[in-house]
Structure formats: C-alpha cells, structure tokens
Design a binder for these strands. Sequence first.
DNA 1: TGTCAACCTCGACGCATGTCGAAATCACCG
DNA 2: CGGTGATTTCGACATGCGTCGAGGTTGACA
Lengths: 122, 122
Amino acid sequence: MSKSPVVSSAALETPCCTPMAQQRIPAPAAATLAQAFKALGDPIRLQLMSMIASAPGGEICVCDLTPAFTISGTTISHHLKVLREAGLIDGERRASWVYYRPRPGLMRQLSTLLAVEESVTV
Amino acid sequence: MSKSPVVSSAALETPCCTPMAQQRIPAPAAATLAQAFKALGDPIRLQLMSMIASAPGGEICVCDLTPAFTISGTTISHHLKVLREAGLIDGERRASWVYYRPRPGLMRQLSTLLAVEESVTV
DNA sequence: TGTCAACCTCGACGCATGTCGAAATCACCG
DNA sequence: CGGTGATTTCGACATGCGTCGAGGTTGACA
C-alpha cells in the first residue's frame, strides 16, 4: 500500500521548482511533473484528491470516498493507485480499512511551478 | 486561432479557487479544472507551456517551438491546440508566423488550488 | 498571378486509459 | 476454523490519445 513509489523519492524531493513563467522546465523534470499533472487530469481523481487533501484529521478512509461517487469501488481503487504512483497521496491499512493522506511535497512543487507574478494580470 | 475557446469564458473567469486542502472541489468545477491539468499532463505539452510562459516579451513563435523537439510539426500543432482549448494559452497569426502567449488567469487558479499551508510540511 | 514557407486540418495507426465483474487478499469476529 | 466485509488485483472491453504523412489554408513576395 505505502509501497508503490513509481516516482523515485529523489525526484520527489528535488525541488524542481521555480515558476515556469520564470524558467523553462528541463526535459527530465518534465516527465515526472507531467505524470503528476496527468494524475490530476481526471475529474474523479481531482475530486478524490481534493477530498483527501481537505480531510479533517489529515486522512480519510476509502470507505468514505467510495459512496461519494456512482462508479464502482474497483474503479475508485484504480484511481487511488494512479494518484499514489504519481506521488500525490499515500495509503495505509489500519484494521480492515485503508486510509489515504496527501503528500504535500509534490503538490507544493506543482503549485510553485504554476505561480504567476501578481503584476502580469491580463 | 484565437477562436477556439472550448472552455467557456465564464468558467475561466469564475475563480474556482480556494486551495483544495481547505475545501473540496465541487463536481462541476472539477470537469473544467481536470481538463486543464490533463493538458499539462504530457511531457511535451508541459515543456511547450513552460517555453511559452517564460518567453521573453510574453510570446513566442511556433517556429521557435518546433525545432526544440524531435517530433513532427504536425504533432506540435496538435499539442498547442490542446493547450489552447484548455484555456492555458492563446495564439495569434501575424504575417506568416503564429505567436502564442500564456493566459495567466487559469494558471493562477490551478496554482491556488494546489497551494499548501506552510506549516503542514511533512 | 504563381511560388514558397509556415502552420493547421484530416485520416489513419497503435498504445494507453477508464470502466466493469470476478476473483484474490486481508483483517476482524463468532 | 469458517464466514463476512473492505479493498485490491486480474482480465476484458470500448474509448481516448499521441503520433505521423498527406493535403489544405494563409500570407509574403517576385
């Protein structure tokens, strides 16, 4: 569960990250970062991510996630795996239930990457 | 060229956007936002986006984008269309060349959405 | 007007992805 | 030990997506 880091921890810990408006993203970094954006690029995964990130107590049970959607539990599980492998969340089994929590490190990198200077408003 | 706003301008101008760590994303907003994340979820598009966002003068010619990659100009054009339809960039033809510029509005929304409080560092 | 260069659209091709049901795994509990 | 509920894995299917070559459109220029 907590054992599926497809994205190397080195890549996750290395701050990529000046805003892309200030500096072009090098090709190697683009691969890892694009994987994270792709993981957020599905409406269901984006909602899952927001439910996990905003969970009171910092974590939430899959059993609380599943009933919020009409798709099958199988598919929810698949989407959670994609988020996990992108390095955005982490899961832990406790008793019969699995709890997911956000990994703020990568989220912060993505946020910084997209940051735009205040003055450049269009 | 500048006429392909698949994402309604209403959706683009409405600030979605409190950080997802503070508030769950409503389903309707998730669709538009996920489209933008998906557009960034390809290594080539992410690099294109960063080249456009960091272009000196605020814009860059397709003819300067294409030679930076090994894929065909057809495919570059396709990727630019995806970024355009997601509301992330805008293109304009001038003389024989087409210039692209970033649309900071949506980028800023995405950045805010991913923002994490300083203290929650893990 | 004809030609050339830049860029886009179209149609096609494989590969990736979202979805499901069935079956496996894990942990509790009687 | 056997049963039950929660979650993941597996296998299959349809759809979506990245890529290309061929051909079309636009604008410059002789």
